[in-house]
Write a protein that binds this DNA or RNA. Structure first.
Lengths: 214, 214
DNA sequence: TGTAATTATGAACGGTCGTTCAGTTTTAAT
DNA sequence: ATTAAAACTGAACGACCGTTCATAATTACA
């Protein structure tokens, strides 16, 4: 499990209220951030959509960057929560991997705006906050690694053990590509077609053939 | 060939001088942009490194966004110029593809800071400028498509024709991944190893086997 | 109901930064 | 040497925006 984020201090005593308000702030901010980007979004705008005064907003956070951090954290755990339940290992390695790829790309599709935002604005975060995001990303890759490792061990996949991690990242990146290159991919493919084609290609890549003579 | 960019107007009459000064501006700006990001960089900073006054700077551009556009354009044509000579088709399809992948990832490695910058700041550009960047990206993909198409036709690769474009994008994305995920990949692999492994995986993906019975 | 602690408010502050422009220096042609 | 056009300068402008704080409203508790 991920160690929870470094606590951001607040002027408000009631800890529960802080949680509630912060979630409201995040919900208000996330859409504006996604639409306009972090730098072009005003704290005043967020407060307005949040439905409270700037003064109040600043009782719950210290700086504008705090909001960005909360938003990034929110997006990442949303993605994580959506993905994890779909990644139970059951059935053969091949089927498990197929299901995992399907689940992952489906979620990328659903959350594409958020994912694009996350990657474009991560650099505006402090080093510590960025490290947290990286860790979350690694955790996700770890899930794919597990599946691949099992497949290699039971002979379903034929890649070298040391490349399991790389292939896991490849799969994630090919999934995220659906969001980042939507301007071209989503004209040529439906989501279903995309998932099917990429899955086939990945399985080809993993299929046994390395022992065959040339 | 790419249609050249929409001309940015200038107060200066001497067109040649405009070109020279703009190149100086770009050279001064690109490093600061890459290091600090577009929004956190001051026009004053650029002018200072450029070695002239803000007033002079503003004789050659209209707005700060103009500088961003010039920088993005510069980066993209630098990448393009570096890549194209390496992508001559010669020898078998397999060898040509191997050479192209090698060249592309090597360039991604050399220009990783620039490439990351390009993707993170593209959204700050106007729609028209963004379209230009997309077109340049498509052109690059087109080169890989050509190689793949030839390989499919001569029987070296066994993917469906309609998926040639997708595989071309896959290759580019796996190349760019070396930059975007450097925090993990460049700890686990040297550039050489990375190129070799990804090339092998891609070639596996393309290898003939679809006619084999299950 | 009274009052003290907690929470909400938004005008005001201070700083930054993109952009301009009135004036100076340089260049080039006569 | 004269002068007009071209190029350069940087102080000043104005707008914006993150943040604060004195004050008001609300809540909790007696």
């Amino acid at each position: 499990m991920l160690k929870k984020t470094k606590k951001i201090e607040s002027q408000i005593k009631d800890k529960e209220l802080v949680e509630i308000r912060r979630m409201e702030i995040v919900k208000a901010a996330v859409d504006i951030f996604v639409r306009k980007g972090f730098h072009k979004t005003t704290v005043r705008e967020i407060a307005q959509k949040f439905g409270m005064s700037i003064g109040t907003l600043y009782e719950y956070i210290r700086t504008k960057e705090d909001i960005l951090y909360l938003v990034c954290d929110y997006i990442h755990s949303s993605v994580g929560e959506r993905v994890k339940p779909s990644l139970k290992m059951s059935g053969g390695s091949k089927e498990t991997l197929e299901r995992a790829i399907h689940a992952y790309i489906t979620i990328v599709d659903e959350m594409q705006d958020y994912i694009i935002f996350l990657y474009q604005e991560t650099k505006s975060l402090s080093y510590e906050a960025r490290k947290y995001i990286f860790r979350a990303e690694q955790e996700m890759a770890g899930i794919f690694e597990e599946i691949l490792k099992r497949g290699v061990e039971d002979g379903t996949f034929s890649i070298e053990k040391k490349d399991v991690s790389l292939v896991a990242h490849n799969i994630m990146v090919l999934g995220q590509m659906w969001a980042f290159r939507r301007w071209v991919l989503q004209k040529a493919y439906t989501l279903k077609q995309y998932i099917k084609t990429q899955t086939t290609l990945i399985l080809n890549e993993l299929a046994s053939r390395n022992t065959k003579p040339d």
